[in-house]
């Protein structure tokens, strides 16, 4: 499994300079303008990185080759989640430093910086295993946008506003713990689903 995680990280080697440059520009703009989203832009990259890694695997048919490697399908899937997790943590670390420099609430920003890409990965990885990278881009976009648009249309954003207010009233510690627990459960379900898909898939 270590080999597979290394494979994912080595695949980033050639694009890492470009990523650092883009994140750097966004972060600098964020720090200067005080825009928290731009400061935590690394999280956006962390979220979409499994998609890029999966695209590499798909183009060179690595998953087919992996079927004859001395590893199980569970290990293949776990390696993909570990790589994604490592990337999220690295991105969050970068965001925390940038938030601290910009004088923003780094704890709040860091939580969003970790939680959002992790949730995104939890959803996209099984979808990618099932339908491939190309289709999963549209499916994921639809899955995130449709509920949002429906809620906004039906309630003029009231539901979202109420939800945000309710969340703001929860103690940050409880909120962080609850978020971590929900993400952990989602992770387990997502891994279980991905393993099942990979085991039944033909390469």
């Amino acid at each position: 499994m270590k080999g597979l995680v290394l494979k994912d990280l080595l695949a980033l080697k050639s694009i890492i300079k470009t990523i650092i440059l883009i994140i750097g520009i966004f972060m600098f703009s964020g720090i200067v303008s005080g825009n928290t989203f731009l400061v935590t832009y690394a999280a956006v990259y962390a979220a979409i990185m499994p998609l890029n890694l999966m695209a590499y695997d798909e183009s060179c048919r690595f998953n087919r080759f992996a079927q004859i490697l001395p590893i199980t399908n569970t290990q293949i899937v776990l390696a993909r989640y570990i790589s994604g997790f490592v990337i999220c943590i690295a991105a969050a670390a970068v965001s925390i430093v940038a938030l601290a420099i910009s004088g923003n609430n780094w704890a709040e920003g860091a939580m969003a910086g970790i939680a959002v890409p992790l949730v995104y990965q939890v959803f996209t990885v099984p979808v990618m295993y099932k339908w491939g990278v190309e289709k999963s881009r549209y499916i994921t976009m639809a899955a995130f946008l449709i509920p949002f648009v429906v809620i906004m249309t039906l309630s003029d954003g009231e539901i979202i506003q109420n939800a945000v207010t309710a969340l703001q009233n929860i103690s940050p510690l409880y909120f962080a713990a609850a978020t971590a627990a929900v993400i952990a459960v989602m992770y387990v379900c997502s891994i279980y689903l991905s393993v099942k898909i990979v085991k039944n898939k033909e390469w």
Binding site: K7, L10, A11, K13, S14, Y56, D57, S59, C60, R61, F62, R64, F65, I68
Partner: peptide, 12 residues
């Protein structure tokens, strides 16, 4: 096993 194409990302 040898199948069609190298099973690693093109930048390897």
């Amino acid at each position: 096993v040898v199948m069609e194409g190298v099973p690693f990302a093109p930048m390897f």
